[in-house]
Design a protein around this nucleic acid. Structure first.
Lengths: 208, 208
DNA sequence: ACGCTGACTAAGCGCTTGCTCAGCATGGTG
DNA sequence: CACCATGCTGAGCAAGCGCTTAGTCAGCGT
């Protein structure tokens, strides 16, 4: 029942199979700690202890505490963009694709809420170069959503006055799920996804 | 053109008129710093310097760094709840009141985005007693929104499958504005509010 | 048996943090 | 004038921070 959100993320990391298992444990511990307390309130001792090691062991696998955050953020954004691309590229018209996108985008932010929190709310703590990479990925995600809405408008399936505002609202709804969703929530990630899909289609004026 | 978001907040603070002006400057500096860097990444020296004082001066007006956060959070939540109550209590049917609520809720989170960020994203740093007070206020806000949606459904003006999920979506949209809105945004807070009001009414299935 | 390597630890360095405290200037009051 | 309360500062303390260093040890090829 309890999911391991980091598992959604790990396969997208470079060299995931060759990397020692200890690096994985450190990454998992960092995600959990950063999500719960925030980057600056998390100490390297927290992470190392949660991973069952001494503080110094962290620096064998990662250059710094910030490098850990950068790796989580990069991989998390890459995974999200991949999810968005997969959903929008599938079969069906704009409305059908939008429903699928919102369902999966929302469910991911509920299921992988710890990763989602780090990805969306710890951007300011990223080193400059990592931030630049991540900002580019975020732009790509928003562009995908905007393009899909525009396609829907062109096909006469959506009716929207401002595409950019609508795109903001769609992504915003999904992202904010990682803030408020807890494992005590009454809805499963998939249920929530389906309901949000319905709400978004109505928001976009999809012909009923 | 540039707003001073803290001004929206200050009047709701207890003893605002009797309190020395230095306390106000410290509070303003704290809001700005907490919003930009987060609570834990902000030092007492940051706050004091921004207020034009030495670090020690902070402790004449506030018991601790956390007490500053608590005061900001309490006042910010109280102001938000007051805004919500004022909007929902006005004249008009559920749809009209919901439009007004979303317009004002959204515009506030754009205009007072610095306060909004502290209020919504630094909850975990609150001392336990302050957190309890603030959690109660947050529950009240959500209850107001839920009640308004239920009233709309009862009046036949809304059509919603799950009231709680819809309420979550409505508040979520507004709250997340404080995360992404910047003063470089192309829309004014009021424009954004109007557009979001439109989107939310559609989302709730308001009869057109 | 041997030396080497790579994962790891115990100890701790240099620095920053939240916060304290003795003392100073100011201005209202007798 | 003396007196004191108020608002503030300069200096600095104890604790905790990110990170480094020297060294241990199991597993490996030869």
């Amino acid at each position: 029942m309890t999911s391991t959100p980091i598992a959604d993320l790990w396969p997208t990391l470079p060299g995931a199979d060759t990397r020692p298992e200890a690096a994985y444990r450190l990454l998992q511990a960092a995600v959990e700690s950063f999500a719960e307390r925030g980057f600056h309130a998390t100490t390297t001792r927290d992470i190392a202890t949660a991973a069952g090691m001494s503080p110094a062991a962290l620096y064998i696998h990662y250059q710094s505490k910030a490098a850990l955050l950068a790796e989580i953020s990069r991989a998390g954004h890459a995974a999200t963009l991949a999810l968005v691309r997969q959903a929008t590229a599938g079969e069906g018209g704009p409305a059908e694709r939008m429903r699928r996108l919102v369902e999966q985008f929302t469910a991911w932010h509920a299921r992988a809420r710890t990763v989602g929190r780090v990805v969306n709310y710890e951007l300011h703590a990223l080193p400059e170069d990592a931030y630049a990479q991540v900002a580019a990925l975020r732009l790509d995600i928003e562009r995908e959503v905007s393009a899909l809405i525009e396609a829907g408008v062109a096909a006469g399936e959506f009716e929207v006055s401002e595409v950019r505002t609508a795109a903001r609202a769609v992504t915003s709804l999904g992202i904010d799920v990682s803030r408020w969703y807890t494992e005590r929530s009454s809805e499963t990630p998939e249920e929530l996804g389906r309901r949000y899909g319905e709400l978004v289609l109505r928001m976009l004026g999809a012909r009923c």
